[in-house]
Amino acid sequence: MPSIPKTTKALILQNAAKDEPEYTLGKANSTFALKELELAELSEGQLLVRTIYLSNDPAQRGWIQKDADPERLYVPPIREGEVMRSYVVGQVVQSKSSSIPEGSLVASTGGWREYIVTDDKTARKVDPVPGIPNTVHVGIFGGPGFTAYFGLVSVLDLKKGESIVVSGAAGAVGNIVVQYAKHVLGASKVIGIVGTNDKAEWIKSLGADAVVNYKDADFKEKLIAATEGYVDTYFDNVGGEILDLMLARVKRHGRIAVCGAISSYNGKPTQLNNWFEVISNRLNIHGFLVLDYLSRAPEAVAALRKALEEGKLKHETKGETLVRTKSFEEVPLVWSKLFSGGNIGKLVTQVSDDI
């Protein structure tokens, strides 16, 4: 167990971003800056946690948007001078909790910090899974897994024999949607949308019946062919042109779950030319956040663990982009891979040794 530190390195928001953030530190327009912060003494029920893994999520981009209206955000925006928020997995190095002892592995909302102070009511004690890296707790057993599970089960209510299209299929959420829809819920046809041929082959290996590369010149034609007869449901992770196209490829009275719009996060607003399809075909579009379902997290963990144990869900090296930083200053650069397609599956930053 490491000694108890008095300070921690942290990355704070220096310049809220209007368009593309500046990920490199040390510039006048850098989005983030490195600071050394003092660690407060623990109060009863609190934990000091050494960060091991940082979860990289597209939603973080919206939290640092310049001039964001707090009334329209689902969580408070990060203000300039505040630590960048993120989900973390780490080891408890000091505890004033009766329920979570020192040495435990926990998952918690924290931030881009080497050490975080968190409350035992918000931190979740997690147990290592034999043969599987602890990154599973920011992937299948974290936000991506919960989003995939509740999006399929509660939002889309996908039934056995129904068809589904998944955009961002090779992403952290998308690859779990593909697997769970096909192997657990019994979808008749699962169609993935990806951005490279390598990703297409991987998603096919996970069970997708068809995969379309949105960067192909004839993408629209291929999507129409893959969705011949139309599909029952669409799980949207990207927004933009793909969402617009899919409005015309879902069956009458079809369902669309919308949980991401990464194509528009850096100043590229979505334009919908097919919006009348929503009216003419009475489509049900349901936007949702994983935060809406956190009270049901044990249900998701149990279902996802069962699927994992039965071999219906895979946690494999190819389904995770793990980057071990050489210095804490590299954390924003790793996060930037989300917006350039530089990851397959869940993008995780490792900032210290695992337990």
Rank of each mutant, 00 (worst) to 15 (best):
N266D: 11
V92W: 01
F235R: 03
V238W: 00
A123T: 08
A172I: 07
L48G: 00
A68G: 14
V173M: 08
S97L: 10
L304P: 01
N29T: 15
R113L: 06
I100W: 03
A187C: 12
S264P: 00
T317I: 04
I64D: 05
T122L: 11
A210P: 07
H253D: 11
L48P: 02
G110H: 14
M246S: 04
S3D: 14
G345K: 10
D353P: 00
G260V: 13
L333F: 02
G45C: 09
L272E: 13
K215H: 14
I344Y: 01
I100G: 04
L156M: 10
V155P: 05
V155T: 13
P70D: 12
S167H: 05
R324E: 15
T109M: 14
V351T: 14
G345M: 09
F288V: 07
K215G: 05
W112F: 06
A123F: 02
A148D: 05
N29E: 14
N237C: 15
V89P: 08
R282S: 14
A169E: 00
I176L: 15
P76Y: 06
L25S: 14
E228N: 10
H315E: 09
E41N: 14
K268A: 12
D127I: 11
V93M: 13
S280R: 14
Y87G: 15
V177H: 06
A59W: 09
S167W: 04
P269V: 12
F276D: 07
S55H: 09
